[in-house]
Write a protein that binds this DNA or RNA. Structure first.
Lengths: 351, 351
DNA sequence: ATCCATTACTTAACCTGTTTTCATAATTGC
DNA sequence: GCAATTATGAAAACAGGTTAAGTAATGGAT
């Protein structure tokens, strides 16, 4: 909200209205008196703002409380209207498409999963994706015109405009401009993110990284990449390629993955190579927590424990290492969160 | 400036005053009409704000223009008062202490350099530092009571509170809490940063990274570490250890440095090992530019050119590689910038 | 030297929005 | 039914910003 220009009284009104909305968004149901005190405005101002927000459908009156009555005239209660709009999030991977619908409060309304073939051409993949999004919206009872933003998580490298500039293993996927392909579907904006970055965002929101703002998420499977959250925000880098540590020579992940597939690699060697790559990232970023996700994370403590030990040896400071708790839903949830961030930015940054 | 509470008309006044100050800070000399139009307030409001800022000494009237006169009543011109306060920056290293004094406009007023012995005990090093700061202030004609902030750059790992939690080669330096040691000296706040981070900040401000917001600065000498700027802000990490890539096993910098000292390492091997370490950081961060500084950077193009080639080979995207242009002044300048950021934050975030 | 065009400065009236204050409404407990 | 308590609503007071009109200072033309 870094304004570098001034304003008149109408700015003040917008500021106060946003402050009231914010208060109602973070707290649950509140009386006008509570709203006024939390937003640090007088009661009449709070009343004005709430009336305004009611008119715009962003706030609604809560049903009467059934709790123990107290003395005095009972106050009306108001709450953020989570049905003021909806967002969709979708994870499009090699083997599956997972779409999730949520309300503006972040409440999940529906999820829909489609299994697909890795070899599926880009056009068909896109068609499946559109179908999954339509289905999940229908299941949630959400009209696509009420969808305020759509988050998309995809493997590969995504530039700031939402174009997939490099995808190693999805046929024809490189060069796909996802906002163009999907913008006709919904009313709102389309936001695209790299899968490991969105997985990090998902774990930050609903998973093991709740409350932790500096996070590295390691997506470990056939390939390996890292998703990076700094200050709670996704770090994408100049080309959107931040965290693409899989091609690091010294790490030898390609070789390891090949050996692993052929059954030649011992788990000790696997852990050592994984640890070397993770250490490079941890030493660079110095995060608070490292989350292990992707196919390899299904190994559970058998992988995590030795990795912890090895990492403690390689790094300057011990770093918390955790397994993903959202399994293969983390990317889709991160996509939802990306969409929610966009909508909340619109709601809170002006009026 | 993320306010989550509202306000009354007095907030509006503070907002407008800050907007006017900002306009005057970024532009040079402006007439009231220009101020009003740039700050998007009416002329009387701009006049009020300027009068207020004049009273607080943050703005001053400019001397009459000597340019070609135009028709009409000549306007008075106002400018940000760079003498409203001063900042100091100091780089304390193994071999030297470099202190710089600057005004609030970032103009350098004096610099003072002291050569010291690497073995100097911490107490003596602190004493030399205080002396250098007093000297540079005196040379600049600045009273220490007018110093609004002091930035300190030191090698080693610095936590968020400004304590040196780990310093490998300065005797007794580990555990030094620099704000405590130096706060009696000046009126303002003491801010501490790691040397490579501040070097990155310095290059961003006055060096080769001007206008580039995602920067990795490689401090390469006996030891190696990286300073990281993301979105123009220093990234320190959880423990302040972000960029401490020197201990990375796969990189073998320790060995290389030893071989180098003994004359056994070829420059090819040196470049290869350096490139491996830098690539690990570049792949993780995906910065726009990599700056090579420290002792090794004196090799100039003989180092930079092969490094560019090797990095292009190791990384996914070609990254711009440049030699530091500030030589051994980058840390001190970064320390000045750190102090200026603090002061500007105070000036602009409220009134 | 005087007057005019031009631009800057100053002041007063008006508007928007917030706060304070006071009166009124709705509920519980006796 | 009445007192105590708490919420609601309306009016007056206040602060700050904008618009608009008048005043001051300068260069150039006559």
């Amino acid at each position: 909200m870094r304004r570098n220009s001034g304003g008149d009284a109408s700015l003040l009104r917008r500021l106060n209205t946003v402050a009231v909305l914010r208060v109602l968004h973070t707290a649950g149901q509140l009386t006008l008196t509570e709203v006024a005190s939390r937003a640090k405005v007088s009661r009449p101002t709070a009343e004005d703002a709430v009336a305004d927000l009611l008119g715009r459908g962003l706030v609604r009156e809560s049903p009467p409380q059934d709790g123990p009555r107290v003395v005095g005239r009972p106050a009306r209660r108001y709450e953020f209207n989570v049905d003021a709009g909806y967002v969709l999030g979708v994870d499009v991977g090699a083997h599956k498409i997972l779409a999730v619908a949520a309300d503006l409060g972040g409440g999940e309304r529906a999820a829909h999963r489609v299994e697909i073939e890795p070899e599926l051409p880009a056009a068909d993949r896109l068609a499946e994706m559109r179908g999954a999004l339509r289905t999940v919206a229908a299941e949630a009872g959400v009209k696509l015109s009420d969808v305020r933003a759509l988050g998309v998580g995809t493997s590969g490298i995504v530039d700031t405009g939402g174009k997939v500039t490099l995808s190693g293993h999805l046929p024809g996927w490189t060069g796909t401009h996802l906002p163009t392909e999907l913008s006709g579907l919904i009313a709102g904006k389309v936001l695209v993110g790299n899968d490991s970055n969105l997985a990090a965002l998902g774990e930050h929101w609903r998973g093991v990284a709740r409350g932790v703002d500096d996070v590295v998420y390691i997506l470990a499977g056939r390939r390996i990449s890292a998703g990076i959250l700094l200050g709670g925000r996704v770090h994408t880098g100049r080309h959107g390629a931040a965290g693409e540590i899989g091609i690091m020579r010294s790490m030898g992940w390609y070789d390891t993955a090949r050996l692993l597939r052929d059954g030649h690699a011992s788990s000790v060697e696997l852990v050592n190579r994984l640890a070397a790559g993770v250490a490079a990232t941890v030493l660079t970023i110095d995060p608070e927590v490292v989350i292990i996700g992707g196919g390899l994370s299904q190994a559970g403590d058998a992988l995590i424990e030795p990795l912890r030990t090895k990492l403690a040896d390689l790094c300057l400071y011990p770093v918390q290492v955790e397994a993903s708790t959202l399994a293969d839903r983390s990317v889709a949830l991160g996509a939802v969160r990306l969409a929610l961030d966009e909508v909340e930015g619109q709601l809170f940054d002006l009026g």
